[in-house]
């Protein structure tokens, strides 16, 4: 892949959600509790690539996706689109950003308005952004349905008449109707059955090639992420611990957490069984992120340095970056 200017640049993104203090907490003089969802995420997304984002629930991957779609406003840090800072844009430019960066959601049952037919959903999107003159809207809807492989008679049906996989296709059609450049897919296929998952993933890959889309594929299913992504970022407690070329990362993960995560994913091969859990302990609560390396309490290689000093994401080779003090030592071991 030749070097191109990234379409999206995220730099040092922080997002903390303060929890409401109850009266009881105030009386007890408890400190205000803060969910630290994102703690300095930096990444670049190149045009036309798929960047996979993996991590366990509560690690901040969905929060990151929602920040990029501007559903959340970051506390600190910048998001740049085509080199321009998003937060500095005026209302008109923000609408344009919203059009160019579309998001698709996990739950196929709640991401569509239950009272609107597919035609109404698509018409609204096309009208609001003036994508087509009114007389061409119905033709465009037919095209969009074709694009996501839904039958033409789907247009006048309500969401409840569709299966989960079909609803996700409608959500994809809605996103595509405004001709975006970037799609943020937040667990797009996680709620679907395996056989239907494959259909939607195939569609997404095909559309990406056809329409030259950039995709952020957020998911917890490592096999799927590996399959669709050019590059992958592994997130742990609101920071990226490893980012790099997908095949490289999956074949030889460098961060101990990436290693554990990959080992935990159940392989289809009954001969590749492991007899001990790949990792002990659980993800700490984002309410109190450990000092130093957030992973140190669960890491078999942790040293004193890991407890005090937060490792920075640094390049280990041209294919990827890793945030671990002992990355070189682990690599040579």
């Amino acid at each position: 892949m030749t070097y191109e200017a990234p379409v999206l640049e995220v730099e040092d993104l922080h997002l903390h959600f303060p929890l409401k203090r109850t009266l009881f907490d105030a009386i007890q003089r408890k400190e205000k509790r803060i969910v630290k969802a994102l703690n300095g995420v930096s990444l670049e997304v190149k045009r036309g690539e798929t960047l996979g984002i993996v991590g366990e629930s509560g690690c901040g991957k969905s929060t990151l996706a929602r920040c990029l779609a501007r559903l959340y406003e970051a506390d600190k840090g910048t998001i740049r689109y085509d080199g321009q800072e998003v937060a500095a844009k005026d209302a008109g430019a923000l609408r344009e950003y919203n059009r160019k960066v579309q998001m698709m959601f996990q739950d196929p049952y709640s991401s569509l308005n239950p009272r609107m037919t597919v035609r109404q959903v698509l018409t609204e999107a096309l009208r609001v952004h003036n994508m087509r003159p009114p007389e061409q809207i119905n033709d465009r809807i037919a095209e969009l349905l074709d694009l996501v492989r839904l039958p033409q008679d789907a247009a006048d049906k309500l969401p409840h008449e569709f299966s989960g996989g079909q609803r996700q296709r409608i959500a994809i059609a809605r996103a595509l109707s405004v001709e975006p450049e970037v799609l943020v897919a937040d667990e797009l296929v996680s709620a679907l059955d395996v056989s239907v998952q494959a259909q939607v993933v195939n569609l997404l890959l095909e559309l990406q090639d056809k329409l030259d889309l950039t995709i952020l594929f957020v998911a917890h299913d490592l096999r799927l992420v590996r399959h669709v992504s050019h590059r992958v970022a592994v997130i742990y407690l609101g920071t990226i611990v490893e980012i790099g070329d997908s095949e490289q990362l999956f074949n030889a993960p460098k961060h101990p957490y990436s290693k554990a995560l990959l080992a935990a994913a159940p392989s289809l091969d009954p001969d590749k069984r492991h007899t001990r859990p790949s990792i002990s302990g659980e993800l700490p609560s984002p309410l109190n992120v450990p000092k130093g390396c957030a992973f140190h309490a669960r890491c078999p290689h942790a040293s004193g340095r890991c407890q005090s000093e937060t490792p920075r994401l640094r390049a280990l080779d041209e294919l990827g970056n890793v945030a671990c003090h002992h990355a070189e030592a682990l690599l040579s071991a």
């Binding site: 798929t50 494959a198 259909q199 993933v201 890959l205 590996r226 050019h230 997908s246 289809l268």
Partner: peptide, 15 residues
């Protein structure tokens, strides 16, 4: 349908 042991970004077999 499970993407394991197939080249990345190739169409998955789907029922």
């Amino acid at each position: 349908s499970v993407p394991e042991n197939i080249p990345p970004r190739t169409p998955l077999y789907s029922v």
